[in-house]
Amino acid sequence: MSQARHSITRSIAAHGVLILWTVIALFPVFVTVVNSFKSRKAIFAEPLALPGPESFDLVGYATVLKQGDFFQYFLNSMTVTVGSLFFVLLFGAMAAFALSEYRFRGNGLMGLYLALGIMIPIRLGTVAILQMMVASGLVNTLTALVLVYTAQGLPLAVFILSEFMRNVSADLKNAGRIDGLSEYTIFFRLVLPLVRPAMATVAVFTLIPIWNDLWFPLILAPSEATKTITLGSQVFIGQFVTNWNAVLAALSLAIVPVLILYLIFSRQLIRGITAGAVK
């Protein structure tokens, strides 16, 4: 009896903390979305109020959709993000499989080298990257961004996935070899499905910085045709005047695609995070 009450107080406390955290985490998103539906005057008068009949105004969205080619920016962001994600997961998983599965000279050193990128920010190499892109004629192409983001995402992907792949039963892979499966089949059909939660974790951690990045689009691909959504939103932020309606509307719209991608991966992600806990 006392045990039951004890666990109730404990679960109330735990939920209290979690709810508080949720509120803090969601507050900026909430303010952004709410204010994107209000007129400029209402945003400044009562930033926290919900849009009412008087303050409700879609002028932000109207500006965003009129100004520039927002649909194109969306498409660019989507292409870059999904493309980079695909290559990060594919190459990251392949490298991780090689590191975890095969004994070869320099295996440990290679693993260390591949993981080193986690600690060294890729932006330090911006000038060199820009020179390379200019030399290879890739400036103002989405390819440039996909290449850079793939390089940026790989170290973490290799690191996490090789740890997970080490835990995949060696007997299972050996059974496949005896049954005549090729190494590719063993990789794609046996190992990848078993590390799916880890793949989802890597996907989410790779996806969000790429979607939000302003640095490389600004430097490598600022042309109208290749602008990403984050860069596109910057036109509303001027040195002297900022069109807050439009900024907030653009940001609100930009949340939607990541949210969708996140929801796709999140079920797998939660399994990945709790992988050790449930057994």
Binding site: S169, D171, L172, R189
Partner: peptide, 14 residues
């Protein structure tokens, strides 16, 4: 032309 049976069964889960 061999077959092996493992301690951990090693059946294909899918």
């Amino acid at each position: 032309e061999i077959a092996m049976v493992f301690q951990s069964y090693a059946l294909y889960p899918h």
